[in-house]
Write a protein that binds this DNA or RNA. Structure first.
Lengths: 333, 333
DNA sequence: CTGTTAGCGCGTTCAC
DNA sequence: GTGAACGCGCTAACAG
C-alpha cells in the first residue's frame, strides 16, 4: 500500500516538465535530458520524498529484478548458507531476493507460497529442499517462470536442480569410516521416500559391499533427518548395538544420535564414532565437535542464481563435498 | 516476469464476454453475473491456464495483502520462531508474508532490503531485530507504510516495537542464580551499544545491588551475542575466574561460554553454572542442556501482525519471559 | 533534448 | 446482468 505517495506526475508538475521527462531523468537515461532539467527534477523528487512504484514499472516493462527463494521450513538449518550464497550472487547481478516459507510437507502452504510468487512479477524461483506436491509442480511449470531446485534431486521427474551427489555423500561417508577400521556401521535418520535419501543409502550399501560386509537391516534406521529422528535411531540401536560407528543422515540427526548415545552410556568417540552429513555450524557447537561430510551450501546458492541468469546451461549441476575432520571419529581396533 | 501469460482480455475473447465481466466472476462478485456466464468464464480461464497478475490488481486497488518481514541476518537463530508466529497469524488474516535479509549491521544491505519492499505494494513491514541506520529509518518512515520492530527496543527514538522486557530479562536471570546461592556472577557477550543490551546490564546490576554484591568490572564481558563473543568472554574470565555462575547474553553466547569453560577445565554445572538467554532449540542440543530465561518469540511474531492489523493500539508491547530449567544450573555452597 | 500518446493487466464506475 | 470507458503509476515509441 503506497498510500498518498508522490508520483512522477506530481514531480512533473512541481518541476514544470512532462512526466516522460521525469521518468527519463529518474531512470538516468544519460543523453536524454539536459543538466538543467535533471537538477530541477531531482530536486522536486527529493522535496516530495518520492518513492518509485516499481510494481507499476514492472507492469509495463514486463520484467522484474527480484528472484524468489522458497524454503521448505524455518527449521532447515542449512538453508542459511544457501540463502547467503543466493543473496551474494544476486546482488552481483543487481537482483533482489525475497524469501518465502512453504512449511513442512504441507501442500496447502506450498501452494500459498507458490501463488504469492507466481501472481507477481518475479524473474525466477529457487526452491530450497522443497519436494513439491504434484499439483504444485504443475502450477509452477505452468507459470512459465524459470525455476531451479536446490539441495534436492529427483529421478522420476525432469526438472533443473543443483545439489551434492547424494550417492557420493553416502559412499564417501561410509568409506571414511571403513578406512578407520570400522565394520559395523549404522546409518541413522535417513529418508528413503525421496531420491536424496535413496541415493545416500545406495552409496552406503555399495561401499559396504565393496568392503565385503553384509549390512544388517537394523543398521539402517529411517527417519526425516531431524534431531528426533537421530534420537529414535540411536534408541533403536540400543546400548548393545555392536556398532562402532554411525553416520548421521544430517547434522541434526547426528546430534540426536550423539546425545542419545551418551545417555545410553557410550563414550564418543572412544566407544562410538559419529560422522555427520551436512557440515553446518552445529557440528562445532556440540562436544565433541562432529566430523562431517560437508556440503557446499553457499556454492549451491551461487550456482542457482547463475544457472537462472545463464539459460541454456546444463540444468543439473553438482556441487562438491568434502570430509571435514573434527573430534568425533576414532580408529577402530 | 509473467511472460506471455493469459490475461482477462484473452479469457473475455474466448468466453465471448467483456473483460469487465471476467473480472467480476473471477473476483466472485456474487449477484453481478449469471450462473451461465460464470460457468463460461471459469471454463475459459481454466483452459488458458490463467494466472492472475496481482501486481496489476494492487496497482488499481491501491492495497496489498503481503506483509514483509526484514531480518537482520540469516544467522539469527531466534528468527525462526518469530517468523513462524508471523506466518501463522498472517494466514489467519489472509495475508501473505515475504522475508528479506538485511545483513549484519550493513546499512547498504539494509537500504537494499528496505527499498525493494517500499517500492512495491506491501501492506506493512515487520523488522526482526534490525537496528536501522538513521538514514534508513528515515527512508522507512517516509514510505508511510505501517511498520513495527520485533525483538528490539529503543529509548531515543519513538517507534512501535514488540519485545521482551530486557531489564526484566537481566534482572530475573541474575535473581535466578542469586537464589541458588551464587554471588560471583558473570554476564557474557552482551552488547552495550544498544538499548536492549544496556537494559539487560541494568537489570543485572540492580539485582546484584539488591543482594549487596559489588560487581567487578571484569564480570561484565561485552560482545555481540555471538558464539565467538561467548568464547572470548570465557577466555577473558580465565581458568581461575572466581566465578561460580555465568549468564550468557544469548543462547549462542552461552554455548560459547560452555565449550570454552570446558576446555579451561571447568565442569558444568559442578564448578560453574551457566544460564542462557533466549531459550531456542540449541539449548537442548548441547550437553548439559542449557537452562534459560526464555523469550516467547512465536508470540512476538503473532503480536506483530496483530498490531499492524489493529492500528490505534498501543505501539509498544511486551511479551512474557520465563525460566526454563534444564541441566546447567547447580546450587552454590 | 522534450512533450505527447499509448498501453501494461486489472477493478470499477456508469450507463444501458 | 453486462459492456464501455477510465485510470492506477509507469515506460516506450514517436514526433518535433
Amino acid at each position: 500500500m503506497v498510500g498518498m505517495a508522490a508520483t512522477i506526475k506530481d514531480i512533473a508538475k512541481l518541476a514544470g516538465v512532462s512526466p516522460g521527462t521525469v521518468s527519463r531523468v529518474l531512470a538516468n537515461k544519460v543523453g536524454f535530458f539536459s543538466e538543467h532539467t535533471g537538477e530541477k527534477v531531482r530536486a522536486a523528487a527529493a522535496e516530495l520524498g518520492y518513492q518509485k512504484n516499481t510494481a507499476a514499472a514492472e507492469l509495463v516493462t514486463q520484467q522484474s529484478n527480484v528472484v524468489a527463494a522458497i524454503v521448505n521450513s524455518t527449521k532447515t538449518n542449512f538453508a542459511s548458507p544457501i540463502i547467503e550464497g543466493i543473496q551474494a550472487e544476486a546482488h552481483r547481478h543487481d537482483l533482489n531476493v525475497i524469501i518465502l516459507y512453504a512449511g513442512d510437507d504441507d501442500s496447502e502452504q506450498q501452494r500459498r507460497a507458490l501463488t504469492t510468487v507466481i501472481e507477481r512479477p518475479v524473474r525466477s524461483i529457487l526452491l530450497l529442499s522443497v519436494d513439491l506436491a504434484a499439483e504444485n509442480l504443475t502450477l509452477l511449470q505452468n507459470s512459465r517462470i524459470p525455476f531451479c531446485f536446490l539441495s534436492i534431486s529427483f529421478d522420476e521427474i525432469q526438472v533443473p536442480y543443483i545439489t551434492s551427489d547424494d550417492w557420493q555423500v553416502g559412499y564417501q561417508a561410509t568409506q571414511t569410516l571403513l578406512k578407520l577400521g570400522h565394520q559395523n556401521i549404522g546409518l541413522a535418520g535417513v529418508d528413503s521416500d525421496f531420491h536424496t535419501g535413496r541415493q545416500r543409502v545406495a552409496g552406503y550399501r555399495q561401499a559396504m559391499q565393496e568392503a565385503g560386509i553384509t549390512v544388517q537391516p537394523e543398521w539402517i534406521q529411517l527417519g526425516n533427518y531431524s534431531y528426533t529422528a537421530g534420537q529414535a535411531a540411536m534408541r533403536a540401536y540400543g546400548a548393545n548395538s555392536g556398532l562402532t560407528a554411525i553416520i548421521g543422515a544430517s547434522d541434526m540427526a547426528a546430534v540426536g544420535v550423539l546425545n542419545t548415545a551418551r545417555s545410553l552410556g557410550y563414550r564418543v568417540p572412544t566407544d562410538l564414532s559419529i560422522l555427520a552429513i551436512d557440515g553446518t555450524e552445529i557440528c562445532e557447537l556440540v562436544q565433541p565437535a562432529l566430523s562431517s561430510i560437508s556440503q557446499n551450501f553457499y556454492e549451491m546458492g551461487v550456482a542457482g542464481v547463475q544457472q537462472l541468469c545463464a539459460p541454456g546451461e546444463l540444468p543439473q549441476k553438482i556441487t562438491p563435498i568434502k570430509l571435514v575432520e573434527r573430534d568425533s571419529l576414532q580408529r577402530n581396533g
